[in-house]
Write a protein that binds this DNA or RNA. Structure first.
Length: 563
DNA sequence: TTAGGGTTAG
């Protein structure tokens, strides 16, 4: 076997390890053993082999293969590979023992093995070992290596030694994104969110992990709105990453492997979730090879944008290419539901080989509400409440449905019961990104510094769209004073998404698209209003609500009013 | 004389 073939065998083993292809990996192992190729010196095959077993969760075989490597061939990389495998798969004590053994046997310790050791210390939050390792690293001159310092900072950070983290960080002359992110993580955890935010704002460069640390920090402390705002900002700021990825996708085709399919699929999904269904479709069509995940991403993207007709049209093409799975099923079901084919959807759901989950039931309930199917809705709601008693949205949806049917007696009873149990509607919040910062509004919000301008803009907007045919839809609302039309209309007019859009109209240049994020679903009235605003003001308005994107343009919405 | 081992979050 030629040298190149060893490389190929190693590549295959790595793929098998990465994607958990157990059978093929083991078969390859057998071939290599029986053909005697495994014994070839300097092939690094044994290393790839035991790495494969470690990644498959079979640490025993991995260790056995490691032990079988002849001493003359076992180098420090083999030792470090085992060390990192122990660490990665949670055998932390074994990992520690191995490092001690390495020192005893005078195996060469290099920067990589020290990084691995610090990884273990960090996971164990073992300061004692960390300090010892720190000493070794200093003596051997490893503290000039950024990665060593990052790993060491993480040890101190996990153990709460914030000042030591900062000291090492300051001493570092070339700080990487990871260095900054470790500091950020430490500060958020021990110095609090505000200090963390300062570090975050100071950072010269950020990656996905950085954003995640900050968002997770907000979420963990219960600052849901700040987390939401930051997410919105992240989507906005990271857009260039998508452009780069698209270029990569364009080059696909010469050699199609699992990874390029996944890159493409991630793109299809990303573009759809960012409100750009056209780019999503473009990438999908560009891909030379697709798998069932790609198709599902495309379908749920289309569903999210209300393009159900397209899914149905494309379905036969899909069946020819790949075998649909349960996720495809969910996506198609969702469509049927939106299109008002509730009975078909429910039958399909009941025949599924897996019991319906909350997502499926929730989407069906949503469909019932759009199409006024009260009895089915009641039945499904009961199942949902059993699944997650804490979720208030289903109750609110039901009471709105009864309100729409004019059954105010039932609505009052339901709302009274909800109040008694302490169930309150989650307040609706909308964020808009304008001129580099995020602005958040709640319904009837008057806390914004430019609140006066915003409300006078709101009056202007309402007037202009009224003369273009907008009629406030008060059917789904019950105001405190029965039959008080004016009150109802006022409540509708200052919904958070309307305020956000008015601010956007004030703050951005004509014809700039407006991007709004909302934590709940957009209401019917706002939906109708936005359509007219987009026409009257010649603005594209993209609202991401809890379920989907609504792209309002020239008087209509991309969701085709499946709402 | 190259190839195999590494850091941050969830």
């Amino acid at each position: 076997m030629k040298w190149l073939s060893y490389q190929k065998a190693r590549l295959l083993l790595r793929q098998c390890a990465h994607h958990s292809f157990l059978r093929p990996g083991k078969e390859l192992h057998a071939v290599l053993t029986t053909s005697g190729l495994k014994k070839a010196p300097n092939s690094y095959l044994s290393n790839s082999l035991f790495q494969f077993y470690a990644a498959s969760g079979d640490m025993c075989t991995a260790q056995k293969l490691f032990d079988e490597i002849p001493l003359s061939e076992k180098d420090n990389v083999d030792w470090t590979t085992l060390l990192s495998s122990f660490s990665r798969y949670g055998f932390l004590v074994d990992s520690m023992k191995l490092f001690v053994e390495m020192r005893r046997k005078r195996i060469e310790i290099d920067d990589v093995s020290v990084v691995c050791l610090f990884g273990v210390c960090a996971k164990l939050e073992d300061l004692g070992f960390g300090v010892q390792g720190h000493g070794v690293a200093v003596k051997m001159g490893f503290l000039t290596c950024v990665k060593v310092c990052n790993a060491l900072m993480d040890v101190y950070g996990k153990c709460g030694f914030v000042s030591e983290v900062k000291r090492i960080f300051e001493a570092l002359d070339e700080k990487s994104v990871v260095s900054w992110t470790v500091v950020l993580d430490t500060v958020v955890k021990w110095d609090g969110l505000e200090r963390g935010r300062e570090v975050f704002d100071e950072m010269p460069e950020r990656n996905v992990v950085t954003w995640t640390v900050m968002v997770a920090g907000y979420l963990g402390a219960g600052f849901t709105d700040e987390a939401l705002d930051l997410l919105a900002e992240m989507v906005f700021k990271c857009r260039w990453v998508h452009v780069y990825a698209l270029k990569k996708a364009m080059m696909m085709g010469e050699e199609v492997n699992y990874d390029t399919v996944m890159v493409g699929t991630a793109l299809v999904d990303m573009y759809a979730k960012c409100g750009n269904i056209d780019s999503s479709m473009k990438v999908f069509r560009l891909m030379h090879k697709r798998n069932v995940v790609t198709w599902n991403a495309m379908f749920s993207g289309l569903a999210m944008h209300g393009k159900g007709r397209m899914v149905i049209d494309m379905f036969s093409e899909m069946v020819r290419e790949v075998k649909p799975d349960d996720l495809t099923f969910t996506a198609v079901l969702n469509l049927l539901g939106r299109a008002g084919r509730i009975e078909e959807a429910e039958n399909l759901m009941r025949e599924m080989h897996v019991p319906p989950n909350e997502v499926v039931l929730g989407s069906l309930l949503g469909s019932c509400s759009v199409h006024g199917k009260l009895e089915t809705a009641e039945r499904i709601k009961r199942e949902l409440v059993q699944m997650s008693p804490g979720n208030t949205e289903y109750q609110v949806l039901m009471s709105n449905m009864y309100a729409a049917e004019g059954r105010n007696d039932i609505v009052d009873r339901l709302r009274g019961r909800m109040r008694n149990r302490g169930i309150r509607k989650t307040p609706g919040m909308s964020s808009i990104h304008a001129n580099g910062s995020v602005h958040r509004f709640s319904s009837g919000d008057r806390s914004h510094p430019r609140t006066k301008e915003i409300y006078s803009k709101l009056n202007e907007v309402i007037e202009r769209i009224r003369s273009a045919g907008y009629v406030p839809d008060v059917a789904g609302l019950v105001s405190p004073c029965e039959g008080d039309l004016e009150n109802k209309e006022q409540a509708l007019c200052c919904h958070s998404e309307k305020l956000a859009v008015c601010f956007g109209l004030l703050e951005t240049k004509p014809r700039t698209p407006l991007h709004v994020f909302k934590n709940l679903r957009i209401c019917k009235d706002c939906h109708a209003a936005m359509k007219i605003v987009s026409k009257v003001y010649d603005r594209e308005i993209i609202i991401r609500d809890r379920n989907r994107f609504h792209q309002f343009k020239d008087g209509s919405c991309s969701c085709s009013d499946y709402w």
